[in-house]
Amino acid sequence: MEATIPLLKVDSVGIRFGGLKAVSDVNVELFPGELVGLIGPNGAGKTTFFNLLTGVYVPTEGTIALNGENLKKQPPYKITRKGISRTFQNIRLFSELSVIDNVKVAYHSLAKHAIVSSIFRLSGHFSGEKDMDEKALEFLRIFNLDHFKDEKAKNLPYGQQRRLEIARALAANPKLLLLDEPAAGMNPHETKELMNLIAFIRKEFNLTVLLIEHDMSLVMGVCERIYVLDHGQLIAHGKPGEIRNDPKVIEAYLGEEVL
């Protein structure tokens, strides 16, 4: 960990649903350019933590700050515009829209033409749409999806849908990219390709990445640091080597032959 200021600072954040403390007292700091893993058994609260970071849920305790700015009570779309974007554990593409339109939706907040300009087809509409077209195609090329651009998103093979979701998240111009089990359901070859891709975009776009992943060898292989959640609490945090040998982590995963 460098001595720079953190991009994301999560300070004793928690949320309860009725009597259930889904996440409690979680402290996380992410520094610019890092690739960090978030692991934990099923139901540990990983996805809930992402929902807290992106404003889907409002924390019942603690604070979240991006670049020193408190995100309290900001709606999700504003948090995205401030620089956190994500993918979902259950793919949530705009399935009736074409592949390229999915990416364009994410690029929407960067578009400059107003509704009036589009309705009356003023020049701003055409230049704005052209710019979006070009930008979106650029993202699709990086993900090798450009030859599918006019296909409906729902008609893509599963692995490509996952990639499209990442492309879309990237088009929202994030500083911090949250990936919720991006390799779920992929075969080993696809997974390996995906990990190379994540490493590439992280360099190319100067991203910080927080990655939830079940495939332990994968997380250990690519992440520089790892946080471990269990029953909503952080039970360990450190370098992959330290995590692998942490007795608490081994206990949490007991019975799951993954380590």
């Binding site: 992106t54 889907v56 709606p75 999700p76 779309y77 995205t80 515009r81 974007s85 994500r86 979902f88 949530r92 593409l93 705009f94 399935s95 009736e96 829209l97 339109d101 364009k104 939706v105 994410a106 929407h108 907040s109 578009a111 033409h113 509704i115 589009s118 509409h125 704005g128 749409e129 979006m132 879309r168 998240a169 929202a172």
Partner: peptide, 22 residues
């Protein structure tokens, strides 16, 4: 237009639309 696509994204998946800055 991008505005129509924003509306369609709401129809398709409001949570995702929100998460994409719409």
């Amino acid at each position: 237009s991008t505005h129509g696509r924003a509306c369609i994204s709401v129809r398709e998946d409001e949570t995702a639309a929100d998460a994409m800055g719409i």
